[in-house]
Each structure stands twice: as C-alpha cells, then as structure tokens.
C-alpha cells in the first residue's frame, strides 16, 4: 500500500524482492531438473522466475529494476532465443530423417548422467521453454511498468 512517496514502496518489499531472486533461480533449476521423474517443467520454472522478477519491478519500479538487473533489458532476445532453441530441438530429427520431436539419445541408448540429471535433448527443449516464458513475461512487465504506451508485445 502507499506509504510515503508513491515511487518508493515499502523497504520490506524491496529487501524481500532482492532476497527472493536467488532462491527462485535455484527452485527453477530444480523444477527443470526434476521434471522428468517428478513434478516440474520448463514452463513452471519460467513462471516462478518471472514472479520473482515481477516482485522486483513492483519493489524498485521499471527504470531502477532494469538498472539493477541489466538482463531485464534483453527480454525479447531471451524469448526469441528460447523459442528458436525449443523449435530446433523439436525439428532437428528431420535432418536425420526421423519424425519431429524424436529425441537423442534415442530410447534404450546410453544416457550421460550428472547426478540424477539425464542429459538428453528434451532437457534442451525445456530450457528453451524456460527462456521463452521468462523472456515474454519480462517484455510484458517492461511494457506495463513503462510510461510510454507504444509498441505492444
């Protein structure tokens, strides 16, 4: 609520926003990594991170949030990069003469593992989706926070 000047939200919100960002990224990484055996996926991870970023926007306002986290200026690039990454993993099997959305290593083949994380192409797809969701929501937040009203997403 509006305590004091309108452009300076509560100090508590600002502190919490800053503190939450790191853990959220951790949770997002866990959501992507665990998605193949338990609950979680790239979309959920993306939304979680976007929520933390939204809180940062609320706490600091558009200009200061983007000064504090320069990556927020690259929302469109994140979104397009993520979409291309996802499309590439979806359609690369065409080059090998397989139907789209086949994955490598193919079923039954040996999979490299890092801890419990299996390294195969659906993981790349999920990371693409994650980037896409974060990117699109950053673009939206940027427009909603900005003062100019031109250029919808």
């Amino acid at each position: 609520m509006s305590s004091g000047e309108p452009d300076r939200p509560d100090v508590i919100i600002r502190v919490i926003a800053r503190m939450l960002l790191g853990p959220t990224l951790m949770v997002a990484a866990a959501l992507v990594a665990k998605g193949y055996a338990e609950v979680g996926d790239g979309f959920g991870a993306g939304v979680a991170v976007a929520l933390a970023i939204a809180l940062t926007y609320v706490a600091l306002g558009g200009a200061r949030a983007e000064a504090a986290l320069p990556v927020l200026r690259h929302g469109p690039k994140l979104a397009v990069g993520g979409l291309l990454l996802a499309l590439a993993t979806g359609f690369f099997p065409l080059l090998l003469g397989e139907p789209p959305v086949s994955h490598r290593p193919a079923p039954g083949e040996h999979v490299v593992k890092v801890g419990t994380l299996e390294l195969f192409t659906p993981l790349v797809f999920d990371i693409g989706v994650f980037l896409l969701v974060v990117g699109v929501l950053i673009v939206l937040l940027h427009h909603l926070a900005g003062r100019d009203g031109r250029d919808g997403s």
């Binding site: 939304v47 969701v133 699109v136 929501l137 939206l140 427009h143 909603l144 100019d148 009203g149 031109r150 919808g152 997403s153």
Partner: peptide, 16 residues
C-alpha cells in the same frame, strides 16, 4: 497465460 499477458498489454495500450 499467453492470452492473459496479451490482453493485459492490450488494456494497457487502450488506457494509454
């Protein structure tokens, strides 16, 4: 999610 984001952006522009 995508459509709601879009609608919000649209309303924002309408307000502007």
């Amino acid at each position: 999610l995508a459509t709601v984001a879009l609608l919000l952006a649209l309303v924002h522009r309408v307000v502007m």
